[in-house]
Amino acid sequence: MSFWDSFWNIMWIFFWSFAFIAYLMALFAVISDLFRDHKLNGWLKALWIIFLIFVPFLTVLVYVIARAPGMNERAEQRARESQAATDTYIRDVASSSSADEIAKAKALLDNGSITPEEYAALKTRAMS
Rank of each mutant, 00 (worst) to 15 (best):
S17A: 12
S17P: 04
F18G: 10
F18H: 04
F18A: 12
F18L: 09
A19Y: 00
F20Q: 06
F20R: 06
F20I: 07
I21F: 06
A22R: 02
Y23R: 12
Y23W: 15
Y23N: 07
L24C: 14
L24A: 15
L24D: 04
L27S: 02
L27N: 07
F28P: 08
A29L: 05
A29C: 02
V30C: 14
V30A: 10
I31Y: 13
I31A: 15
S32K: 15
S32M: 11
S32H: 14
S32R: 15
D33T: 13
D33R: 05
D33W: 14
D33E: 10
L34K: 06
L34M: 09
L34D: 11
L34I: 13
F35C: 01
F35V: 03
R36A: 12
R36F: 09
D37P: 01
D37T: 08
H38G: 00
H38I: 02
K39P: 00
L40T: 09
L40K: 01
N41P: 03
N41M: 03
N41G: 04
G42M: 01
G42V: 03
G42H: 05
W43A: 02
W43F: 02
W43S: 03
L44D: 11
L44K: 04
L44T: 06
K45A: 02
K45H: 03
A46I: 05
A46Y: 04
L47D: 11
L47C: 09
L47T: 12
I49V: 15
I49G: 04
I49S: 12
I49F: 14
F51C: 13
F51Y: 13
L52D: 10
L52N: 05
L52K: 07
L52E: 10
L52G: 04
L52T: 08
I53F: 10
I53L: 10
I53T: 00
I53V: 11
F54D: 07
F54C: 05
V55D: 04
V55I: 07
